[in-house]
């Protein structure tokens, strides 16, 4: 159970995130657990003092960056999920988001991903930045700098990046190899494929 102090700290994160990411949370909960469970998630957020009505969120509106983590934490707690379930939620997100699927048209190769993902990140976030780097012909790293929301968000992003990469390399696997919550200066995800 998250404490009020943790919630306050998360909400102090500077920056904003596009509403589309919350729409994917909504679609995931509705599709996997039903509309009534979405109401439980909303109640959890209201109890925490940061209410959100998912049906009213517009894809292009900006919300506080901290709400990204709170939405995931509310889903996890209200529905009694495990971290792996949240990772799976990240993996499902591209399937539910019209905007993300449209942007996937730009990701036709690893080179394009390396070249365009910073710009794509900026379409969704005013906080942090993503720094991709091609390591060799079978792996790249994705580094997220200056955005430390919550370890649960790290798990979500792991699943999310894996799914995105699988649109280009179906056998891609992603794991977080560096984490700011473990003392590293940033979050780094290693993407590899056969």
């Amino acid at each position: 159970m998250i404490s009020k102090e943790e919630i306050d700290k998360i909400m102090q994160t500077e920056g904003q995130v596009k509403g589309v990411v919350f729409q994917t949370d909504r679609e995931y909960v509705k599709n996997h657990f039903g509309y009534e469970k979405l109401k439980l998630v909303e109640q959890k957020l209201a109890d925490w003092g940061h209410p959100l009505v998912y049906d009213k969120i517009q894809a292009l509106e900006w919300l506080p960056a901290g709400m990204r983590a709170l939405s995931l934490l509310a889903v996890k707690e209200a529905l009694e999920l495990k971290d792996e379930d949240i990772r799976n939620m990240g993996a499902q997100a591209p399937k539910f988001s019209f905007i993300i699927r449209t942007l996937l048209g730009f990701f036709m190769s690893i080179e394009k991903i390396v070249k365009t993902s910073p710009e794509v990140w900026q379409r969704h976030w005013t906080a942090g930045q993503i720094v991709p780097e091609q390591i060799n012909e079978k792996s790249i790293t994705l580094r997220i700098e200056n955005l430390n929301l919550h370890p649960l968000f790290c798990k979500y992003e792991e699943g999310y990046f894996e799914r995105i990469m699988q649109f280009v390399k179906p056998e891609s696997k992603v794991r977080e190899v560096k984490c700011a919550f473990k003392g590293d200066p940033y979050h780094e995800y290693e993407v590899s494929w056969k």
Binding site: K95, F96, F167, P170
Partner: peptide, 25 residues
């Protein structure tokens, strides 16, 4: 997408493949 991966599907595609849209994508 140019790699032949399904990025989007209409509802009738779900019915034809007998799979939810999210599983087709």
């Amino acid at each position: 997408n140019p790699l032949g991966m399904i990025i989007d599907a209409g509802e009738m595609a779900s019915a034809l493949f007998n799979l939810p849209k999210e599983e087709i994508i």
